[in-house]
Nucleic acid binder design. Sequence first.
DNA 1: GCGACAG
DNA 2: ATCTTGTCGC
Length: 210
Amino acid sequence: MKDFNYEELRNIQRGLVKKINLKKVNFKRIKYIGAVDVSYKKRFAKGAIVIYDNHKEEIIYEFTIEKEIKFPYVPTFLSFREIPVIEELYECSKIKPQILFLDGQGILHPLGIGLASHFGVIKNLITIGVAKKRLVGDIKKLPEREMEYAPVYYEGVLKGYCLKIGKGKRFLWISPGNLITPEEALKITLKFIKNGRHILLHRADRLSKK
DNA sequence: GCGACAG
DNA sequence: ATCTTGTCGC
């Protein structure tokens, strides 16, 4: 793994965060919704994308790719590790989703530019960040019952929601990536939670691990 | 200095 | 994320 200039990468993030646009979604345009996930094995990363047809209400397309890992996992710099894989998945997909779910944070990031926001900005795409763990953000009290949620604040501003899924101590940290509001990101995500899991991200996760 | 820290 | 045996519970 080469040496990376993290100060320079910080500057890239500072430039990208200015381009995030948290506007409302025009739902009439939405026909395809996608999800991507990446898993790792030795020197390689395997990415999977699934495309859901919102009218047929089913997954209609999916595939995987493998790529050599070129960047280490460093908290707050996850984008630089995963985006090469996700970008190839997106560009090679014969069906382009109008909304894309990513396994990671959106604006719930120290600089406001998590994986979902980063990818949403460079592709000018509606993206939603769905993370399994907290990176930043404050919450008054964790939701206690299944499918309950609580607002997450960072620097005093509402940035996303924490949703309790399933029975145990499993939560999802949902925040807008780009071109969507926190409330809409929560609302759309809720539609895909079945049996305590996000059906599209879960499918992408399983595919990437095959 | 100490604790936190997406995947 | 990944490495990993047995084990608790529906």
